[in-house]
């Protein structure tokens, strides 16, 4: 594993932290990273200097922190590993979500790319089986087969908000948008699809319920409601007003 094999586990984590902050559209600051990783700002500075020496991050005190092209690529690789491992643990093996999250964080540093590619193949295999109704994966998990294919190519399978463009939940009431993609898990996706929320369809955000409640959207001639989190998994592009 080329360059980042030289990186220690904690260096990888620092790199990921910077990457995530950049992806969320904010400027990475030493204090944010320190808070994020719960370490002192001094150790962040030290780590950043090291990453700077490795050519992954550009950092000098008083200047803003940026990722180099190489750094961004390395971080992206790490992030997609993390996402896949999380998906594998949580959705294929059925590990409890919070444990899956922390285990994915631990595994991502140690798993070899060869093992990883085999895991990816296995994940695709079980998901396809389950679509065919085969109970291998399901029987293992002690559940009924979901009858759902979640086998999008691994890096894409469980895209976090950072990995996707505009979400339906980002739009203010009154905005119109065209649906591009449904990133929801399969049961929710099928439900949305059957109700007519399909890629290519135009919708209008009507209102949001109080207290962080659902979003009302208008589609053709009907009103649908979805939770913000579900709306967050619907990727859209803005459409001109009527």
């Amino acid at each position: 594993m080329e360059k980042q094999a030289a990186l220690t586990e904690s260096m990888e984590d620092y790199l990921l932290s910077v990457y995530r902050i950049v992806r969320s559209g904010r400027k990475p600051r030493v204090t944010d990273i320190a808070k994020n990783r719960s370490v002192s700002p001094a150790s962040v500075c030290q780590a950043l200097r090291k990453l700077d020496r490795d050519g992954l991050v550009r950092y000098s005190s008083g200047r803003s922190i940026t990722l180099t092209g190489e750094g961004a690529k390395a971080a992206q690789r790490l992030a997609s590993r993390h996402d896949f491992l999380l998906f594998f643990l949580r959705d294929i093996l059925g590990v409890e979500p919070s444990a899956a999250e922390s285990d994915a964080c631990a595994l991502e540093h140690h798993v070899s790319s060869d093992t990883l590619s085999h895991l990816v193949a296995f994940a695709q295999f079980t998901e396809l089986r389950m679509l065919g109704g085969d109970k291998i994966g399901a029987a293992f998990r002690g559940a009924e087969p979901t009858g759902c294919l979640a086998a999008a190519p691994p890096g894409r399978c469980r895209r976090r908000r950072g990995g996707m463009g505009l979400a339906l939940s980002d739009l203010p009431p009154g905005a119109r948008a065209r649906i591009l993609h449904l990133h929801s898990d399969c049961t929710a996706r099928q439900r949305l699809a059957e109700m007519g929320l399909l890629p290519g369809v135009e919708v209008e955000v009507v209102r949001r319920a109080p207290l962080g409640g659902p979003v009302e959207i208008r589609l053709e001639n009907s009103s649908l409601t979805l939770r913000r989190r579900e709306a967050a998994s619907v990727e859209v592009e803005e459409a001109p007003a009527e």
Binding site: S184, T187, A188, R191, M195, S223, L224, T225, L226, R227
Partner: peptide
């Protein structure tokens, strides 16, 4: 367990 989707129609 994970929570189910909340997709519902608002009738006129």
């Amino acid at each position: 367990g994970r929570d189910a989707a909340f997709v519902m129609e608002l009738p006129p």
